[in-house]
Write a protein that binds this DNA or RNA. Structure first.
Lengths: 232, 232
DNA sequence: CGTCCATTTGAGGTGGATCAACCCTAGTGG
DNA sequence: CCACTAGGGTTGATCCACCTCAAATGGACG
């Protein structure tokens, strides 16, 4: 369980078997709140570990430091819909209401900063900038959900995969190459497809020279415009 | 174009061919903002009239007074995904960013109150309660979108229709009967199905005695628990 | 080097889409 | 008051994109 180097004043504590660190909020934590007095705790979650469950009280708000997180809903028979993938820098678990609407799990080993929801609420009550930021974060999630409804309701399998590749390319490509943290089943459950259909679409794009593989999860896009055209 | 009785101090004006009325905000406008000084304008939209377009600057926030509104996204070839139906009392068109993410149209003749986005923003800057309310409204839309992603990505046609019926029953049933304002095509574009599939599902539920018709859009649910069971 | 998953690929089935009549019913005009 | 019409809704027949089931392949890790 590797942890990112923290502020030297950080106090490391052991909670529930996970390594935690308290640290004063600095500019590096700006994404959640630039507000003096807020304390962030850093946690490490192992691959496939649950971070919180659906309908669980929303005690904390999270920011991914490293790793990746999936949020999802389940039907009673196990069918799963992944609502979003959260990557480095992303905030997740922010709720206006009392409980989490989706469950969250680490896709791979993940470090996250936590702040108490209550302290954010308090900060928002005195600092308009904080309140505005919380609203903007929720609005950003809503925008993503609206785009995703169009994908799930109306796009073909190939269009869904093309959209997914462009999204991931934008969010995690380094030097034109992306290293996907999630498996084909996760991608399928995000796109409303089976893992086999995802695999077939990727194989077809590979055969057409639109993407290159170096390992199943290392992908380089070779014809982005072609993907944009097919994403409808 | 019938209009609801307004405050006697209201000033009626004619704008762009539509009847508009300015009125001081009172408690009846609480859903958008209980903030002195905000002015709401009332507009009437005819059936199928566009209220705003996708990506159009978000100048106003709307509240349905009477009627019904659909918000939707289109793909280039005309495929449409309806994101939500807005009924009496619902707020729509609220954006944290600069532009509308979905287009909006009146489903039937509709009256709506409008307030300038800028004045809401101003109010939110001074009144924490207003800021909190705006956030809660956006969070409520997000919750609906998250539920709907699960429906679109993972539910069967029958499960989608059952979910739809329960949602509409909850939102617009009067004396156990609901009068749907939207046509089968709208329902299909909301549920990610074709209008034929929606019609077949409703016919099957009718044949099973789970619902009764009095006209294609007048529906009474006879076995709500049965619908809840099939909505997975 | 062997084991275990993740991924790919193949073969066949099916739920919902598509294409096509037909049927209501509300509104219109005679 | 009734015949006519148009648009919405229903129903039927067929199709096909994606799912399901199955097996082979590959890659990471002990």
């Amino acid at each position: 369980m590797l942890m990112q180097t923290l502020n030297t004043q950080a106090i490391n504590t052991q909670i529930g078997g996970k390594i935690a660190s308290s640290l004063p909020v600095s500019d590096q934590f700006g994404a959640i709140a630039r507000h003096v007095g807020l304390v962030a705790t850093e946690f490490t979650y192992r691959k496939d570990e649950e971070i919180y469950g659906e309908d669980e009280p929303a005690e904390y708000v999270y920011q991914v430091v490293s790793g990746a997180v999936r949020t999802y809903k389940l039907l009673s028979d196990g069918r799963r819909q992944i609502g979003a993938f959260h990557l480095s820098g992303d905030v997740f678990g922010l709720e206006s209401g009392a409980s989490h609407r989706l469950a969250a799990e680490a896709i791979i080993d993940t470090n996250a900063r936590l702040v108490k929801r209550a302290s954010l609420e308090r900060a928002a009550g005195t600092d308009v900038q904080v309140a505005r930021k919380l609203w903007a974060l929720t609005a950003g999630e809503l925008r993503h959900a609206e785009d995703h409804m169009l994908l799930l309701g109306r796009k073909t399998a190939m269009e869904r995969v093309a959209t997914f590749l462009l999204e991931m390319d934008r969010r995690l490509a380094v030097a034109g190459m992306m290293a996907l943290p999630m498996c084909r089943r996760d991608i399928g459950d995000y796109l409303g497809l089976t893992l086999e259909t995802v695999s077939r679409a990727l194989s077809q794009l590979h055969a057409q020279g639109i993407l290159g593989f170096s390992g199943a999860r290392q992908i380089v896009l070779r014809k982005r415009q072609h993907l944009r055209d097919m994403d409808a």
